[in-house]
Design a protein around this nucleic acid. Structure first.
Lengths: 192, 192
DNA sequence: GTCTATAACGTGATAGAC
DNA sequence: GTCTATCACGTTATAGAC
């Protein structure tokens, strides 16, 4: 079948959930194994060290982003559509499990992360920034968005606002994220 | 003298540093005691449980904010000055130790925090939002800022952008925070 | 591919001497 | 106010049987 191990997949699903809910240092192999009804050692078989698991998660996020990116680049989809899709993706993720963005989860523990994981996180973030920068560029050129200054800086600001909002929403309620998304749209000259 | 215990103060200083550098679950009493050259039990004397220490830290942040707030309210300082002061405070903190904002530190571990600590964090955040909302209101009325929409929503968005930027800056370099601050200023119609 | 068993260590916390 | 000593537990990780 060439099918990827089901257990491995389940481990990653649960780990992704836990990572976004508690941060990298906030969950253990036991949290995963007990949820799956297997033993701690079973996880170690698939991912010898916790770093390996985290690296696999970053890779997975990356694939998801690349998929969206390349489709956008290839077919020239509207920048507005891309941005709206990104907003929907973010708010949906936040509603299901009040989870924070993976960058946020890694950034708190960043100073203590192993080097390779730091590198992976960093280059994934760079990729995300580049993607949204392109969306901003195209959107402004096409007259869909209106903002002043460097598209890259604007993209970074939007990412930062969403990352921060997802965290604040956990403390202060989910409407906070909706509010921030609405304001970001307004700051881009979009209709509410 | 009525002077507060020096050790207690040193503990809180170090703990604040660690909290903003690693998050609530990212540091231990041992990290504090070894740095101060005392034993783990000495910390427990001043703060029986880790929660007590965290609550004290939140209270301290709160006092700092209240001081700035009340001065602003009482003497009617310019909203622009307040905002600039807030930007400077944020970037300075970030430069010294690449530390993230305390809300960010707590929010990642939020789901696992004890109830009283959650309450304290939440009401502190509400206070911060109220303060910046007032700054936004006054600033727009006085013609210092220019933005559309609800002042409170704008305030939340600015807070979220800064919180997110401080974290992203840790991963991607300190210029990222400067860039975001510049963009936030621009989005408020301020000169660069 | 999953198990049992275990190692080696760090954690928050407490009791009681000084 | 700080110490020594200790507890009970959770953590990542490994070795080896099935």
């Amino acid at each position: 079948m060439g099918r990827i191990s089901d257990t491995r997949e389940q481990i990653m699903d649960r780990a992704a959930q836990l990572l976004m809910s508690r941060g990298f240092n906030g969950f253990s192999y036991r949290d995963i194994s007990s949820h799956l009804g297997v033993k701690n050692a079973a996880i170690h078989y698939h991912f010898p060290a916790k770093t390996d698991l985290a690296l696999a998660l970053v890779d997975e996020y990356r694939r998801i982003l690349r998929k969206g990116t390349s489709e956008f680049m290839a077919y020239g989809g509207s920048a507005l559509e891309q941005l709206e899709g990104f907003f929907i993706f973010t708010t949906k993720q936040c509603h299901v499990g009040r989870c924070i963005c993976p960058f946020g989860a890694f950034s708190v523990d960043y100073n203590e992360l192993p080097d390779d994981l730091r590198d992976a996180t960093q280059s994934f973030m760079e990729e995300s920034i580049k993607w949204l920068t392109r969306v901003m560029e195209v959107g402004r050129t096409e007259g869909e968005f209106s903002f002043t200054g460097d598209p890259r800086v604007k993209a970074v600001t939007v990412l930062a606002a969403l990352q921060g909002a997802r965290q604040m929403a956990r403390i202060h309620g989910i409407e906070l994220l909706n509010d921030v998304v609405a304001q970001v749209r307004q700051d881009l000259g979009l209709a509410t």
